[in-house]
Amino acid sequence: MSKQTLIRLNNLKKIFYTDEVETHALSDIQLSINSGEFLSISGPSGCGKSTLLSILGLLDTPSEGEYVLNGHSVVDLTSAQRAAIRNKEVGFIFQSFNLISDLTVEENVALPLTYRDNLKKADIKSQVKSALEKVDMAHRSNHFPSQLSGGQQQRVAVARAIAGNPSIILADEPTGNLDTKNAEAVMQLLEKLHSEGATICMVTHDPRSAERAERIVEILDGKIIADSITHKSTAVA
């Protein structure tokens, strides 16, 4: 497995301005994520981990600092450019699944692919099928999200995240809304994806989930206070 640097954050800051109050959500973040890495970002509520994930996913822009993705700086991109990169390079998994209730499972998974140019219908269909098979949800492709359990919905969300073969999967508390059994199934799915070469960055405040990654970055008050390798990494190595 190659260990190229996929993401590099240098002196990254995020400041929110509300009226006369200046809130430093992130300060001097230095972080590199390699291809094929399974990283978890943990910390207490309000520490800035979701903000960091938003910046990583190009949903938000940093106030200062450098963000290099796949060797290209993505700080000064336009909204449309960021949307295009988000569509091709990033796959999101949310805590509350965030499936569109009026689209079928198949349509939800296909959604990011429909935003790509020059992708034929047949290609979309085969990529969707492959993604659903990976998460073992192909048999539910014509169902609507409301007809699925929470665990199944999150598996569909994972399928949507991987359907476009993104460079990185960003998972925001992916097990937060699930019971223990389903949470375990989702974590196993992420581990499986990682073992197949996917780069995963997961935000969680659950230490047990964090332990499933090979690297843990801890944040407190907007700063990285620890960046450690777990035993899993050692095992993989």
Partner: peptide, 16 residues
Amino acid sequence: AKETAIRVALGAPQYR
């Protein structure tokens, strides 16, 4: 609004 936000997260171009 939430549905739109999901689409944005998935990289939907603004014109779409």
